[in-house]
Design a protein around this nucleic acid. Sequence first.
DNA 1: CAATAAAACGAACGGTCGTACTTTTTCTAG
DNA 2: CTAGAAAAAGTACGACCGTTCGTTTTATTG
Lengths: 198, 198
Amino acid sequence: MSKGQETRERILDRAFRSASRDGLVGLSIGGLAAELGLSKSGLFAHFGSKEELQIAVLTAAAVRFQEVVVRPAIRAPRGKARIRKWFDNWVLWLLDPSVPGGCIFMAAAVELDDHPGPARDFLVGSQRQLLDAVIKSARLAIEVGDFRKDVDCAQFAFEMYAIVLGFNHAKRLLHDPSAEKRARTAFDRLLSSATNPT
Amino acid sequence: MSKGQETRERILDRAFRSASRDGLVGLSIGGLAAELGLSKSGLFAHFGSKEELQIAVLTAAAVRFQEVVVRPAIRAPRGKARIRKWFDNWVLWLLDPSVPGGCIFMAAAVELDDHPGPARDFLVGSQRQLLDAVIKSARLAIEVGDFRKDVDCAQFAFEMYAIVLGFNHAKRLLHDPSAEKRARTAFDRLLSSATNPT
DNA sequence: CAATAAAACGAACGGTCGTACTTTTTCTAG
DNA sequence: CTAGAAAAAGTACGACCGTTCGTTTTATTG
């Protein structure tokens, strides 16, 4: 790997953590450079604009999410096991101690929802993709016989996502010590409602 | 009402809408002043610091939330009807066309969760208060006989909150046209799980 | 090793930010 | 109507912002 790529990744790693705390808007090129012992202009040259930097950070985060959550999930056996893997790894993602600033996607979602542009487009795309993947796993769970045939998979994915959001909120803002337990209880209820006849 | 109070409220109304879009951090004293036809220093004098302005905005938002969501809810008859009122008005709050920037509390929650200070304290306090109020309504629903006696009210509030968060996310970021339907379906499921025996 | 390309630097730009003062205007009470 | 208070404006400040450009250092490659 060339020297340039190397520093670029060092920058993105730091920026990723920084943006988790302060958001994509809060990212400061000067501050980032100082933290990394680089010059502002030297760092800037890697991206060409702040918006490019933001997109690069989102992309790097998406790659990481893929590794931590998506890949392990779609490797798990189809059906309920895979659905559980989705949820478990998603929770792990939110609790990752190496990213104490919280989920960058949730921060970006709130920041960008009213700010059209390539950064928002990227975020929306990756979130849709995530939702679709969950929906697909739910469909497979039906095929495999773990879920009832009349389960609304998109609805299932919506509710699972909602639980994750609720967990994040309770944990990060309210510091609710039982946030994870609550989330798991909610998820179990959701899961069993997809399994058992009404 | 004195002239000062009057402008102060004009400022807060505008700042409230502005912060809904750009967050509390994105609030700009200069920009706000320009929008309102005031001088930067004139506006500044009303609050003394940006942090004070942010807290004032949160306070004004809390008052508004009280009027739009809390008051109508606790006026509704105890039991399932009141719980439904909570949810319905909360959704209305999120859809309020006069605040196109989205829920300021959700924006602030993400912004402030890693930034200790009086603004965060205020937000956490008001969110806890809200949760407690929902929990209390759930307890009353048990007393009245609408809910089963073994319903975990805190768990119920957690899940209801999660659905609201999910709705907000699906609506605002993903622009999912069926977001409200999904949220209502999820809520109905939650409600019936608290009503019927397992 | 030398030639070339890539990377990092340093200084400066125009702007905006929050904040601190002083001065002027406007409201309000006696 | 007029003093005094309240509100608003005006000006200036230091700090930081993203960005540009020319230069210098460091890697890479023939």
